[in-house]
């Protein structure tokens, strides 16, 4: 059907988003000596016991799995910082707090593979889950303002990778529909009724929030 995209061509899978996040740098403290690694994706090390060094997350997890290092959780994952972010997220309906682009993936990978390296993990985990929920609720409500905005573009400031990926199929389609119905040359209108008036008479498709919410739930469970 004209105007529709093939989702398989335009969407990253959860695994692919995670793959991208695994290139983010983290600090590790090795417990063994190892020569520098001169890899395709960069040079890391040398590694000495008790000497902190920066490596990509995938490398940190691989070493952690073999018991060769501890991972230092990034600074933004401290309880103080997360509490502050959660409060700020709740206070402001419009703005999103600045978090790392891959905060969802980084935190869930660390929870899975390095739970013993995160102090107060239960607290940290629940704070991050709360932040995710509050932010996603905000994403949903801010989507309602699409129609008033210039529907040809929407700014999604400070959304994270996973959040963008979750809303992408829906938002992309919705915007495309708005665009299509708002362009006079694409809509056959014999009596010359303008696109603006069409909008005013509320003929544009409404967003099916239930469907959207279910899709989101399914996606977040899948992750």
């Amino acid at each position: 059907m004209a105007g529709q995209t093939d989702p398989s061509l335009s969407i990253f899978s959860g695994e692919e988003v995670e793959f991208m996040a695994e290139d983010e740098m983290v600090e590790i403290v090795p417990n063994m000596r190892m020569d520098p690694l001169n890899m395709l994706c960069g040079d890391f090390g040398p590694f000495y016991p008790q000497m902190a060094t920066q490596v990509p997350l995938w490398l940190a997890i691989a070493m952690k799995k073999r018991g060769k290092c501890t991972i230092r959780p990034p600074e933004w994952m401290s309880i103080e910082n997360l509490t502050r972010i959660l409060e700020a997220e709740r206070d402001s309906q419009a703005a999103f707090q600045v978090l790392p682009f891959h905060y969802v993936e980084i935190s869930s990978l660390l929870f899975e593979y390095a739970p013993d390296d995160i102090p107060d993990i239960y607290m940290v985990r629940s704070l991050i889950n709360d932040i995710r929920d509050v932010r996603f609720h905000k994403v949903e409500t801010s989507l309602e303002s699409f129609e008033e905005a210039h529907s040809s573009a929407v700014m999604v400031k400070d959304l994270s990778a996973m959040e963008v990926n979750l809303v992408r199929p829906f938002v992309g389609r919705a915007l495309q529909a708005f665009y299509k119905h708002g362009s006079p040359e694409l809509v056959p209108n014999p009596d010359g009724m303008s696109a603006r008036r069409l909008q005013a008479t509320d003929n544009i498709p409404r967003i099916d929030w239930n469907k959207f919410y279910i899709a989101y739930r399914l996606l977040s469970h899948a992750l």
Binding site: H150, S152, A153, K157
Partner: peptide
């Protein structure tokens, strides 16, 4: 499009 894109901000755009 009738707007400028701010640097380092994500947008949905055609």
């Amino acid at each position: 499009e009738p707007f400028e894109m701010e640097p380092n901000v994500l947008y949905f755009v055609r």
